[in-house]
Design a protein around this nucleic acid. Sequence first.
DNA 1: GATGAATGAGAATTCATTCAT
DNA 2: GATGAATGAATTCTCATTCAT
Lengths: 224, 224, 224, 224
Amino acid sequence: MQRVRSSASEEDAAEQPRRSWKQDPHGVRLNILQVAREAFAQKGLSGARIEEIASQTSTSKRMIYYYFGDKEGLYREVLADAYRRTREAEDALELDGLPSDEALRKLAEFTFDNHRRSKDFIRLVMIENVHEGRHMPDSTEMSGENSSAIRLLEDIYARGLEAGVFRPGFSAVELHWLISALCYFNVSNQATFSHIFGRELFDEDGQTKLRRHVGDMVLRLVLA
Amino acid sequence: MQRVRSSASEEDAAEQPRRSWKQDPHGVRLNILQVAREAFAQKGLSGARIEEIASQTSTSKRMIYYYFGDKEGLYREVLADAYRRTREAEDALELDGLPSDEALRKLAEFTFDNHRRSKDFIRLVMIENVHEGRHMPDSTEMSGENSSAIRLLEDIYARGLEAGVFRPGFSAVELHWLISALCYFNVSNQATFSHIFGRELFDEDGQTKLRRHVGDMVLRLVLA
Amino acid sequence: MQRVRSSASEEDAAEQPRRSWKQDPHGVRLNILQVAREAFAQKGLSGARIEEIASQTSTSKRMIYYYFGDKEGLYREVLADAYRRTREAEDALELDGLPSDEALRKLAEFTFDNHRRSKDFIRLVMIENVHEGRHMPDSTEMSGENSSAIRLLEDIYARGLEAGVFRPGFSAVELHWLISALCYFNVSNQATFSHIFGRELFDEDGQTKLRRHVGDMVLRLVLA
Amino acid sequence: MQRVRSSASEEDAAEQPRRSWKQDPHGVRLNILQVAREAFAQKGLSGARIEEIASQTSTSKRMIYYYFGDKEGLYREVLADAYRRTREAEDALELDGLPSDEALRKLAEFTFDNHRRSKDFIRLVMIENVHEGRHMPDSTEMSGENSSAIRLLEDIYARGLEAGVFRPGFSAVELHWLISALCYFNVSNQATFSHIFGRELFDEDGQTKLRRHVGDMVLRLVLA
DNA sequence: GATGAATGAGAATTCATTCAT
DNA sequence: GATGAATGAATTCTCATTCAT
């Protein structure tokens, strides 16, 4: 009941070393954020319980209100934080050396894998879309233009065009939309899809196949 | 607040004309279901309020419990009913006369349009996925094998293979997954996606383009 | 769910043969009474559910109200009926030929056995005592003076006194009280007593022993 | 309705004096427990109303849930607390100086008096037996072996055997059962018994007589 | 900053009972 | 007499949030 979550889901690869939280405002904040992320990802905004979040925290309910104002405030921060973390993960991708077609496939497949690893993030996005994006962080710091995903795509696509391997007619955002759709759905709709059509697509073999299809699909779309 | 919803969202094409509800169990049930569909689609399972649903109904809160047992029971029925309706809509598609490639593109684009028209359904599916599919109707009546979408795809793909226009290596369920992913995401993630990358993709021009991309993508994937 | 109880607990030795209830007012009444007896015995007045009683009946809720007015009315009838049945069972005891001491022991031990067999009745009495006897049938038809138990005891005790085997100083009602207390408690408090002191007293050996103790106790009390 | 009960039934001899309840969790708990004890004793688990209990309390309905979780949780605590209190009352009895036969009679008669004084406790036990002991506290803390009643009886009976005044063949638990049965029934079944057989046994004279009978009965049972 | 206690407003659910046919 | 539908009035329980120390 009073378990204090400190390490967490797959996604929390590296988290600050944590000792006594006491008198460590920053640590307390992080601890709350982390527990709340899991809670909101699991149950949604209205489904999550402040009480329960607090109990899995190293501090008390009072501190949640102290730091985040109210439940919605906490949710907003969780969401913003989740986007921030995801961006950081995306920044890691390096494709500079590759020819444009290989780079594009690799980007698609990397995204596929990345989404699979980021269940909680995807769930938060699902939830936020149920709320019609009402709690999205300020678009200034979110602007997609300068996300590394978009910049990579722009670069790859430009190179591909130049090299004559890609056909014209696409924007980076469109390509991003297409890749995202496939990779997102794979995670977001696993529950209902597998309920209706069986689990085969979601075991290792199935996923490997889908991953290749996704790569093929994106590549074939733009190939000249 | 006390408005009685009888006709409803875009999706409720034809609903029975209804007169005095009294002693009209079927009518009462339908009326509740319809109001609840909108409510759950809007706010989710925990977010929706039985009270509020009841108030938009021609009957009372009590009758909701009479017919559906509890909130979750109502939600389950709403979900099952939503899937049923969607299936019926899908059954309408006729592609028999077309060559396989044209048929495939048409199926993809029809799905694209259909999803756009079925916001509430998509929202219910989003919500149910947040709940990890815990309320899905019995798979017997849901089995995807005999959904018209799958059967159409099987038929089209078989014809295409036979004609030598399609390459082998795909299953109908995989193709369905790919098409669904694209068309679903377009609706489900509009809020967050447009928040980050702007609304262009979602205005009429943008959608027309995406729609064509989707058709292209699916077709190019399987073309020999 | 819709099981129609017709035969029932141990206590319903002989119940009218029952065919189609339809158009058989007496049968319907009996059927309701019997189901209600079990329900009230099991869950008490406030704990029992009219809905549930009705569902185990061959008829509907409406008929319960038709025949018994309201829940309390039904409970009253169940209680009165239960007392009536118990009296009838007690009337069966024949002790005429026995000497007074043997007769007294036999009466005590018969009561012990009889109570063990009449769980539902005892439970109804427990429940009615929780209600402080507010629903007891009119005392005219209940008057203890002319219950066979009292009349037997009067007779036995008088014979014992006359024969010089019993000492004076007891009334039949007192003796009845003593015997009842022991035999009743054995059934009524089995749950809590065995929870605290273990089940030994309530297995077959334990009960045989207690039964003899009860006989001994009553006999030794009055023996000259 | 809005009376705040603080001192209560006969059984609440000494209860802490209480001042401003605010921030006095122990006091609040006790206050709730006491009011609930009376309510459950009076109306049973399903008959009692949380609302009504709350209104006789110095706090609110909400606090009942805060401290006891739900109605059943409150009931369980009331029951456990009632047993605890009863034990404590039993611990008061001192019989060391007396010869075994006098001690046994005194124990029986003390129990008789004690039960008469503990109406609410007896009612709670009645109610719990209707519930078939489902809410009994963990048997570890309840174990009868080390109740003072059993230990007293063991001691008395052993002494009586040794002195040759008692005959063998009884266990302390059996004797406790016999004594309890008589003393319990006297309270538990007063309502129905007096309804049928009149009130004489329950006025002062009647009770004095019964009390003596109970003493006689137990003593005569074990006398050599 | 920190903590357990406290709370009002609301939400889900239940139940005996009556109505319409 | 019989049945399923309907209902109002409770009743239990929950939740975000604030207070006292």
